[in-house]
Design a protein around this nucleic acid. Structure first.
Lengths: 415, 415
DNA sequence: CAGATTTACTAACGGAGCATTCGTTAATAT
DNA sequence: ATATTAACGAATGCTCCGTTAGTAAATCTG
């Protein structure tokens, strides 16, 4: 029988609490350095207690003392403590069918290097894994830190992921990727916590952290203005990532946010036919990139070949009548589906990512307008500003959370 | 600038932590009483530390020592500590348009009294408030405890609620109820924390706690098997309460779970007409109790007058052809709407409440069948077993959480 | 029935952490 | 050069924990 309340088995518990509190105050303070007095008033501790905690943190390598930065105040100059964000690093890896993107950041979340590696069309799992290894090696080299400096690595990949076991269960777009024990291979190689998650779940974390209209204060955790943020990946397929109370919400079977499979159209009394073999959902077939391309063609609006729909939005922005009409229909359809999500979740903010979101306000303006007639409360709707880097940045955010654990519990800094 | 990590400003913090841990171990243990040795091994503390904590709790009146209950073991008989659940009580109040239901429970969640008061049709706010006061007075009298014994009171009411300010913003079904400062009036009267919430948000808490297929162990908190549980109120109107990680999820504007307003039907390219004046949403008009009544009439299935749809389900259960067909259509329509909720939230369990749920598996069987063709993962779907008491029981659960705060932080037991 | 055995409670001791207090140090201002 | 200011460092007292030794109250055994 587990007990939920933790018991304090000695004064050393106090020590750990206060070390953690001092470190948190130092990291979350609005200045990069802080005096002992500042930390004492922030934490409510006495000066000697703060000094003790800082000494311990300095011995761990997590804190260093510097001279005064600005003009000297009256009296004896104070020691300024600084969190050594460079004492550890994290990596966020976006493993996609076409590219591998690695972002290296220090413990403060400052990005040190970004490395992009193209993946050959149709490359299989083992080859992809080799690319990931090479990209990680190159990225840490660019950042100028050793591999052993990595405290946590998070990866994001499309498909269905078993986070507990660290395996990909289903990845239709990458042959032989599912079932590859990528996480344990990386863990054995790097000797640090490695995790894997669905790419959209990480993208939403990134939008929460550094995305559109998010607070820009360095070191601030996640967006606190909203209880809930939704990221909609709008491309050929449609999926959503959901953040509730600053943490990704995945549902009971890791199947939350499957907006692409909602079925809006048709008579309520006819039963649905058999599922098509392409694995796409009704809503994806209605307003996915392919559907938009087809719809534009039918309307006589300009489009590129394959599934290139950029010309449609360019033409609409320029005032082309047919293009504007087509965009209007796309927006109306999408708004009806998105409205369902908003009615259920009532998020404070929605961020649209994926290829279609590159159309920007040409498309999102009409979507906002249509939304108003379907929803009860207004919602902030923006295109993603992180673009291609969203997943890797979200992975960095998650890796930072894992590293945080190590910082606050064991203080295992590296000298 | 607030600091997130709490600092320990002295050894007394240890004391508080350990008192809380001992109390938690005592309350969550599988036996109603526990020996000092048991608590020591449960908490990881030493025997003297547990004794010290228990002494403090006894002085507060929260714990008492009793003799051994069962057969004597070898050696000196141990003192058995028991949590005095009767040292405080909570009340859960369901304030509806037709009734006020008060449930009194002790600190262990044991129900001591249930009092129901009918409310006259069209009774206005002030009169309703007087009924609440009278019902509370009667309920505590039935439970045999004084009003001053109430540690927390939670109320649930239909409509839109501002929980921060403790006011009802909109309550279409009860005249002059919105704007009445009911919470502060109750607080001034009872001198204890009083809160108000939407009724469905409380009902879902109750289902999580004591509902269908929930763990029945006394004193256990909330259902831990599922990350997410959804309660669908299916009556004339349709609304949902959502619990995520054991806490009600209300969304950014307290407008989450508005399933009644989703719009499934119709061509995706036509704009919706103006909203009807009755304030009902598209889905409510499609499968609400009124719609079911109308649908049954059209199909020639038996129904009662007004909006009584019980005969329809009785006939369907008996095998009446027209009734079965009508129920099938209702189930198909409802399943399509519910599927949207499931695709977005992926809950582990869904509980159906409200008047329509009284049809039981006659209706829910077909709903389950239709759901399978709309969703990706299977879900547990059950009718509520709490029925009319769901909201009041959820209010009790919430009041217990508030009381818990007082127990674990200030130990202000009453001798 | 008396002693051994088992088990649990009680008291005293040492260690660790925090707050408080006092003296010291290193700057600036006069 | 002296006064002032503000921060550092060491010493003291308090409270909490765990440990250990001693005592009390039952059952079991001869």
């Amino acid at each position: 029988m587990p007990v939920r309340k933790a018991a304090a088995t000695g004064p050393h518990v106090l020590r750990r609490m206060n070390v953690a509190a001092v470190l948190a105050a130092l990291r979350e303070g609005d200045t990069p350095t802080a005096r002992v007095t500042d930390l004492a008033s922030l934490t409510g501790l006495s000066r000697p207690a703060v000094t003790r905690a800082l000494t311990e943190l300095r011995d761990c390598g997590l804190v260093e003392f510097t001279a005064a930065a600005g003009p000297q105040q009256l009296g004896r100059p104070a020691q300024y403590a600084r969190f050594r964000a460079e004492s550890g690093h994290v990596a966020g890896v976006d493993i996609g069918a076409h590219k591998v993107l690695v972002v290296i950041a220090d413990l403060a979340g400052q990005v040190l290097a970004t490395h992009r590696a193209a993946v050959d069309e149709g490359a299989a799992g083992p080859q992809l894994f080799a690319t990931v290894r090479a990209a990680l090696t190159a990225a840490v080299a660019e950042a100028g830190v050793p591999l052993s400096s990595l405290w946590a690595v998070s990866t994001g990949t499309p498909g269905i992921v078993d986070r507990e076991r660290g395996e990909v269960l289903l990845a239709p777009s990458i042959p032989d990727w599912a079932g590859l024990p990528a996480v344990s291979l990386l863990r054995d190689w790097l000797h640090c916590p490695v995790s894997i998650d669905n790419d959209v779940n990480l993208a939403v974390l990134a939008e929460c952290w550094r995305g559109a209209a998010a607070p820009t204060g360095a070191g601030s955790g996640t967006d606190t203005r909203t209880d809930c943020l939704v990221f909609v990946q709008w491309g050929r397929r449609i999926g959503t990532g959901i953040v509730i109370n600053g943490r990704p919400y995945r549902g009971n079977s890791a199947a939350a946010g499957e907006l692409g499979f909602i079925d809006l159209v048709g008579d309520p009394d006819t039963r649905p036919g058999p599922r098509p073999a392409d694995g796409m959902g009704p809503f994806e077939r209605l307003v996915g990139a392919e559907a938009i391309h087809r719809l534009a063609l039918e309307a006589g609006a300009p489009v590129g070949d394959a599934h290139d729909i950029a010309p449609l939005f360019a033409a609409a922005a320029a005032g082309d009548r047919a293009a504007v009409e087509a965009v209007e229909r796309v927006a109306a359809r999408f708004a009806r589906g998105l409205a369902v999500l908003l009615l259920v979740l009532d998020p404070g903010r929605v961020v649209i990512g994926g290829g279609v979101s590159r159309a920007g306000d040409t498309l999102l303006g009409p979507v906002r307008r249509h939304l108003r007639s379907h929803t009860l409360v207004p919602v902030e709707l923006n295109a993603s500003v992180l673009g291609e880097r969203a997943v890797a940045m979200g992975a960095v955010r998650h890796a930072l959370d894992v590293a945080e654990e190590r910082v606050t519990t064991t203080h295992q800094g590296v000298r």
